[in-house]
Structures are given as structure tokens and as C-alpha cells.
Write a protein that binds this DNA or RNA. Structure first.
Lengths: 209, 209
DNA sequence: ACACAGTACGACCGATCGTGCTATCTTGTC
DNA sequence: GACAAGATAGCACGATCGGTCGTACTGTGT
């Protein structure tokens, strides 16, 4: 879009930097105000850029929202998924849950997990925005599932483990931790989730009982 | 507010009926648009009442939102909690989860559980509205906890059962079912939650393994 | 030197927002 | 039937919404 197609042609960096700044602010704002509540005006004054300056980078509000979702995705991948990929098998599965919980606990984003907020907000409203959010959620489930399958193959989980149900449970626990933590401002909820996760996983360890 | 202080004066019923109609519509609308996205104008055209006709019943938008939360609470109590109270102990605990899942699956409200949506929306925004939602969520956890305690006392759960963690897990599972169902429009997710709930409960039955 | 693409601005549009104020019906009480 | 009060509509307000102008500054390529 912004490239001219000419290989020798260099792109000025100012615009890209402003755009990134706008989008990073948009992600943070959207976790509090929602993707819909995030208005161009508020985003403009939050970034110090004029309203039309903001608008210059996007075709429409929906375009801005889609770009915000994409930015939130890369942030999630960098902060939650990739760090956990340094481990393998069961350790990776545990690391994924744990890094999600820290990502919430550390208030990386002021309103907690971006996708949890977006899923709740857009759930009942079909459209390209909801589709992108749903896709990202499926990807996250996919990452958890792959890790669980690998752990099972390694013999770190019972051979009769129902991976889909296990992953459903783990995801439910971390999301509930997110919602509870944000709603009640209580870090104890995160620890409750840690306890629950440990319990669920210990129930599926190979020589349990 | 609406009473004049004169004891002999009776109130006309029309207003109350209209108000109830407005609030019931508001609850449904809020599960899709959010409590903030719900505007007086949209609510007016959805009910067939004029904008000022809607406004006549409330002091401010926040007042309307608080009344909407209260209406959603009674609806939740009537549809989810009370039916389950016909059973006792472990059966009640199971009935609570199941009636919550049906309440979501039957699309009693178009956008799923009102409080799940409200919690996600208001989580990062302190204020009386969030406080009321948080209170209702605590009450729900309380109902689950009482049922679990009773089941434990009856010997239907292991004596070493950590009730708080068990309740956290059950709540997480039904909320995740709600979010997933609304986001992906897939009833299979409700069944996945049923499977997970059965597994969690079977792991805490007295003579397991 | 000059044209042009990229970047950002202020002004403005019609629509809708929440919120008042007033007029007009309707209804129960005397 | 008069009258007070409840219920609702009509209308208008300032603010903000998403979105479109025209414009001006700044580098880069020819």
C-alpha cells in the first residue's frame, strides 16, 4: 500500500512511525473503551496527532479497527507465544499458560487481554472484524493444542488424554483469570488460576493415581 | 423519585409497564451493543417509544444502565439460579452449570450472558456500574460455592476438595462456553463445556481412583 | 530547479449523542 | 365535570461522532 513498487525508492520513516504510534495507542485504548468505543477524536488527543492526521493513515474506522486487531496480534505473539516456544512439550504448555497470566498480571495492556475484550464485544455482531478476532482465538487454541499433543507424544500426558477438552479447560482458566483480575482488581485471582491449572495438569500426568 | 409522598395517591400502571418494556429491551440490546453502545435513540426506536419518552423514566444514562443491570440480574436469577434450587447438593451444583449453559444455548439473550459481556466491557473502567456488575458476579460465585459446600458436606465430593478452586474452574468453563458459542456460533462448544464439567466433577467424586 | 509523493493540519459536514424544557394527552379523585 | 398528576411527545441545545475538504510543509527523483 505504502510502497511504490520501485525497488530503489526509499520510504520516509516518519509516516510509519506515526502510524505505529497510533496503532499501539489504539490497542491500549481499545482494551478499556472497546474497539467500538475507541473514537477517532479520543485517539487523536491521546496520540497528540490531529484527527485528520490520524485519519490520513486509514481508509475508514473499520480499517483502523482491523489494523488495531493486527497490531494486538503481533503484540500477543511477541509477549505470550514466542517466549513459551523456548521450551518443549509439557513445559511449553505450562509456559504458554504462565506467560498469558503474567501478561495479564503485569498490565501489559491496561484492560487485560485484548482478544478477550474484543471477543466479548464483537461476539454478537457478525462482520469482518469479528471474523479476524475469531481467527486469532482459533490460532491461540491451535498453539495450545499443538503443545498438548507434543506433550502427549512425549509421554508427558496420559495416553487417554482428551487433548481438545484439556485445552478447552486451560484456555477457560486463563481467560477467567483475565476477566476476574480486571473486574475485581485482585491479583489473588491470578494465583487461583495457577492453582487450578496445576490441578488440571496433575490430573493428566501419566502415573497419576 | 416517582412517589409524591402523598400516601393516598395511587400510581398509574402505564408508566411501569412501559418502563419494564424499555428495560427488557435494554437488556437484550446491551448484550449485543454493550452497555455503553446502547444509546437512548436506538433504545427508543427499538421500543417504539420516543426518545424523551424513554428518558422520562430515568434521571440519566447511567441511571438507565444501572436499572438495566438490575433487570438483567432478576432475569438471571429467574432463568438460571432458581430452577436449579429445586435440587440439592451435588445435583444443584450440576443443575446450576447446566441451566447456565442452556440459558446461553437457547439464546435467551441474543448476545449470550449479560454479565459476561458487561464484565468484559466495564472491567477496566471503575465506577458504580462496574461495582454493581462485580457484585453480581460475586453473588453468582457465592451461589456456586454454597452448592459445592453443601455437596461436600453431604459426602458427594471428596473431603479434601478445594471448593474455591473447584468453583473457579466450573465458572471458568461455563463462561468460556458462553464466549466461544457467541464468537463462533458453534453449539459444539457448549457440549465441550459439558464434557469438561463432567470431567472436573468426576475427578472430585468421593471414591474416584 | 521543479514536480511530486508523503505527511499532517484546521475547518467543516450531516448525523447522532445525552439531556433538558414544554406542551399535550390520559386517568383517577373529588 | 373540574382538577391534579402521571405519561409521553415535540423540539432544541451543545457536544461529539465518522468522514471529507482544501492546504501547507518536507523531503526525494529527475
Amino acid at each position: 500500500m505504502t510502497t511504490t513498487g520501485n525497488a530503489t525508492r526509499r520510504t520516509r520513516t516518519d509516516g510509519e512511525r506515526t502510524k505505529r504510534h497510533i496503532l499501539e495507542t489504539a490497542v491500549r485504548l481499545a482494551t478499556i473503551e472497546g474497539l467500538d468505543g475507541l473514537s477517532i477524536g479520543k485517539l487523536a488527543s491521546a496520540t497528540g496527532v490531529s484527527k485528520s492526521g490520524v485519519y490520513a493513515h486509514f481508509d475508514s474506522k473499520e480499517d483502523l479497527q482491523l489494523a488495531t486487531v493486527e497490531t494486538a496480534r503481533t503484540l500477543f505473539v511477541d509477549d505470550v507465544v514466542l517466549p513459551a516456544f523456548e521450551a518443549d512439550g509439557l513445559k511449553r504448555l505450562i509456559a504458554l499458560c504462565e506467560s498469558f497470566l503474567s501478561y495479564v498480571e503485569n498490565r501489559t495492556l491496561p484492560g487485560g487481554c485484548f482478544f478477550a475484550a474484543a471477543a466479548a464485544e464483537l461476539g454478537g455482531r457478525p462482520g469482518p472484524l469479528r471474523e479476524r478476532v475469531a481467527e486469532n482465538q482459533r490460532d491461540w487454541i491451535g498453539v495450545l493444542t499443538e503443545a498438548a499433543e507434543a506433550a502427549k507424544d512425549k509421554g508427558q500426558l496420559r495416553t487417554d488424554t482428551d487433548v481438545a477438552t484439556l485445552v478447552f479447560e486451560l484456555n477457560a482458566l486463563v481467560i477467567a483469570a483475565n476477566t476476574g483480575f480486571i473486574l475485581h482488581d485482585d491479583p489473588a485471582i491470578i494465583d487461583q488460576a495457577r492453582t487450578a491449572i496445576a490441578r488440571v495438569l496433575s490430573a493428566t500426568r501419566p502415573n497419576a493415581d
